[in-house]
Simulated scan of single mutants.
Amino acid sequence: MTEFLETPSGRKIAYHRTEGTGVGVVFLGGFMSDMEGTKAVALEVWAKSQGRSFLRFDYSGHGQSSGEFQQGCIGDWAEDAQVAITQLTSGPQILVGSSMGGWISLLLTQRLPTDKIAGLIGIAAAPDFTEDSMFAGFSEDQLAELNSTGVVLLPSDYGAPYPITKRLIEDGRQNLVLRSPLPAPFPVRLLQGTQDTSVDRAVALKLLDHIDGDDLRLSFVKGADHSFSSPSCLTQIEAALSEVLSALEA
């Protein structure tokens, strides 16, 4: 059953929470995605089978949560995630971040108490994408449109175009994670498909080099796309979770 949490900013965040024991798992979705996606639901089933707590939720402006997508930005969504994890989970958690959720997970490793993060799994993680992918790729016409109207539409492989606002770009610059140290004193697993047309494999390699941690691995999956939602990809995610849990127990 969907429940709702009101944040200090007045946003209503929709979520599903599964009770369990031991280290918990939190799924953080991507840009314009929601908690009903294949990966989120599959991981919930996996967590239930393990008797492990699990949380999936919608950022504001996404899915069933309040607000309009076009009004949001990375800072808002990171705040939503921080409030949800703080108020809806107990004990250490493994963050599983997909695409933009990978960026937000990395931000949370800097903002949540150190004993709250037990591990991190990035699935086609897209740190700093508003700056390095979107803004860096704008044409002169798109830059002019962004400055005059405050929004530019970018094509999407998943349906309607993405409305990219000036606020999203400017706020993204305040939340970059690849320009400063990024310590990770916990197991980190990065998963990346070779057929991902949204996040280049160079991003995964850059993130691998940038994160400062003793237990950090990157796996490329040949033929996997950005959604990383095929049965074999889901098995890869579950295996990464099991690997992180085994490392923690060791």
Rank of each mutant, 00 (worst) to 15 (best):
S90D: 13
Q82M: 13
I94S: 09
I85C: 07
K116Q: 15
L95D: 09
I85S: 07
A81F: 09
G102Q: 03
L112V: 13
S90M: 05
V83C: 03
T109F: 01
E79F: 13
V96M: 08
S99R: 02
L112S: 10
G97D: 07
S105H: 06
R111M: 13
I117H: 07
G101T: 08
A84V: 12
L107M: 13
G97N: 08
L106A: 08
I104D: 00
Q87A: 09
D76K: 04
G91V: 12
R111V: 05
Q82D: 00
R111F: 06
M100G: 11
Q93M: 15
L108G: 02
W103K: 00
A84S: 11
I85W: 08
T109R: 06
M100P: 02
M100D: 01
L107G: 11
P113T: 08
R111H: 13
S98M: 06
D115A: 14
Q110P: 05
I104L: 15
Q110N: 12
R111W: 13
K116T: 15
T114Q: 15
D76G: 00
D115T: 14
T86R: 14
S98V: 05
A78W: 00
V96Q: 06
T86G: 08
L107T: 08
A84K: 01
L88K: 10
V83W: 09
I94W: 05
G97P: 03
R111N: 07
T86H: 08
E79A: 15
M100I: 09
D115H: 15
M100C: 12
D115S: 14
S98L: 06
T89Y: 09
L95K: 10
Q82W: 01
A81Q: 01
S105Q: 14
L107N: 07
A81P: 03
T109K: 09
E79G: 14
S90R: 14
S98H: 14
V83E: 07
M100W: 11
I94E: 03
R111C: 06
T89E: 09
A81E: 01
R111I: 06
